[in-house]
Structure formats: C-alpha cells, structure tokens
Design a protein around this nucleic acid. Structure first.
Lengths: 146, 146
DNA sequence: TTTGTTGCAAAACGTTTGCAGCCTC
DNA sequence: GAGGCTGCAAACGTTTTGCAACAAA
C-alpha cells in the first residue's frame, strides 16, 4: 500500500517532535526505504540498498532503526546468531514464524485462532503493543536429508 | 524435581551415542549445572558458576550448549542485543514471556488458551518441536517513569 | 546560536575458530 | 591407537561509541 508510508511518516514526525528529536533528511530517507521492503531485512542490507539514492552512514542506519522501533513503526527479530532482522509494522498483516533448527530457514504463517488468543490476553501492569511467535522444528528440506 | 536431571542425562547419553559423540565429563558437568538453575541464564553466567566445581573453558560451554539444544534439552532465547539466554526444557512448564521495550525486563506468564492454540496448529512439511512467544510492551516501572 | 545529529574509525561485545595436546572409545 | 574433544588465544562480525564537523531549530 502506498498510503502506508504516508501514515508512517506522520507517526514518525509526531514522534520526533514529541521527543524533541530532529527531523533530518537521513531519518526520512531511511523510513521511506524501509517501507519499500516487503520482506525481512538486516541493517547491512538496508545500508547497501540506500547508497545510490541517499548516502547515510551505517551508524545512522542503526540509530534510526532504534528510533523507528521506539516509534512502533518497526518490528525486530533476532534469529539465533544472525544479524537482527527488521520488518515494517504499518500495513503488514500480523503473522507468525516457523524457524528450522537445522538450517535456520524462516517462514511466515498466519493463524486466526492463535492471533485472537494472544491479542485477547490481558496483563496487569503491562501495556502490550505487539508480539512475536516463533515455532521451532525441522523444515521439509532438512527432513529429507536425514 | 530431582528426577529431571536423571531423565535429561539419559536423553543426553542416548543422543551422544546415536550421534557418535563422546560422553566427556565436561558435558555432563555442564548438563548437571544447567538443571540446578530455575531461571534463564547466559553462557558467561553458566561458565562462572562452574569454576569451583568443575573447571571447563568457555569454548566448551558454548559447544555443549549447542549439543543440548540439538538434543532438545535446552531452549534458547535471544532478547534484543543481549547475550543469548537459555533455560532447561525437561520438567519446565510451558510458559511465555513479556518483554519491556524500554528497560528490557523479561517476565514469564502462562496461558492455557494460547498454549492450546499454538500446540494444535498443524504444519504441512514442518515438524515442530517447541515454540517461543514474546509479548512486547511497557512494564509497570517504565510506565510510572513517563 | 545552540545543541542534536552525522560520518568516520576505532572499540566493544558475545561467539566462533584454529591448533596442539589430551582422553574417550 | 585413532580421532573426537578440550583449553587457550586469536579472530570474527555485528553493533556501539567517541569525537569533530555539520545543520535543524
């Protein structure tokens, strides 16, 4: 959706103003790039993909990713020892992940029953914003190898 | 439970034999230590806690943690940028985690409805063994600060 | 003008690796 | 005896940090 980036930009602008942070071109260039991705990406990939359009340093990439996380515009995943992976949160359908414990392959899936069960859970003294579910096991390819 | 370590040792022994790995004293000393912990721990903490009883190198700790993961005797968590955390799996009740996005504080909770929803999920071409659910949000302490 | 942000490079950190010697099998 | 395993230290790769120059407010 094209509107997602507009919504995200507005949220980010409001977030920055409220926190007395500056609205630098780097930050918005990074946000725009992120909202063109439909899959998971890591910091290095994001950094490389930006070089032609708007050059920013890797440090700024990391800095901005942190801000976007705090603003709720991004979700972060830490799959095993690999670099952290990110995905946009606005306009993305809520999904879960299967992770192969042999080869590390990650796949998305959706399940209404699980989603409802988690979302209806209320916590005393904890204001939940989002969640991540990882189901571990062995994928088809790795099953065949053994 | 005291029997958990016995069950775990048996599973580990069988695992090592099957994989043609050696039953070294280091590996069983580490397994025993792990099963005395009731909370999450990281590799460094485990290493330090062993020094008096049975000295092993940090490299061996990491090596053994990997084996125990493969044997299904351990569950690994990667909370944000912190060192990986582990917990024993035998004799532990299935639980989920809330993670504060401000201070990083992790708390366990259980929920039968969520557990059933996830466990009843069937995957085509994926043999699931266990799962992790992280609910992100703001904890009580961090709510008060703002 | 003030002060937050940037780019750069160096440092930090948890984890992995290479290797010589050791000890299961 | 053979070959997997250990300890050690050095290497690795991602992320963080310190600092001077820069630019948003």
């Amino acid at each position: 959706m094209k509107e997602d980036i507009i919504i995200a930009s507005n949220i980010f602008t409001e977030f920055l103003v409220q926190r007395k942070h500056r609205k630098t071109p780097e930050r918005f260039a990074i946000l725009r790039k992120i909202y063109t991705f439909d899959k998971h990406f890591d910091a290095e990939t994001l950094y490389n993909s930006m070089i032609d359009e708007y050059r920013v340093s890797l440090a700024t990439v990391y800095n901005t990713l942190d801000l976007l996380l705090e603003a709720g515009l991004l979700i972060k995943h830490q799959f095993d020892g690999q670099p952290a992976e990110y995905e946009k949160s606005i306009g993305a359908t809520i999904h879960h992940h299967t992770v192969c414990t042999i080869c590390g392959h990650v796949k998305e899936f959706t399940d209404k029953k699980i989603r409802k069960a988690v979302q209806s859970k209320m916590f005393a003294g904890f204001d939940s914003t989002h969640y991540s579910l990882y189901v571990y096991g062995v994928c088809k390819k790795c099953m065949k190898k053994n």
